[in-house]
Amino acid sequence: MTKEYRITWAALVILAIASYSMSGRSDEELFVAMLSATTVVKMSLVVLVFMEMKKAHPAWLLILGGIMLLFATLMLLFSA
């Protein structure tokens, strides 16, 4: 289990570095989409692995996934 946490942490750090490196070009629509996507992936990793929700009732995953998608949609909608 701790190995799974370590792999997840490494993935999160790589994604955070990727987001940071995108900062210079984030005025382009494609990069806003990529930033939103990496944010959703990072949040999903925290929820599923660190918060142990991968074995939770599917309704919780639907609710949380819905919130993440809503966030990404709002970011894309108003930056277009």
Binding site: S19, M22, M43
Partner: peptide, 23 residues
């Protein structure tokens, strides 16, 4: 308590790109 701490992570993961990165 740990779930609350992870909530702080989740909120920051939304705030950082929205406020700092997306221009």
């Amino acid at each position: 308590g740990a779930a609350f701490w992870h909530l702080c992570d989740l909120i920051w993961l939304m705030l950082y790109p929205a406020l700092y990165l997306i221009k």
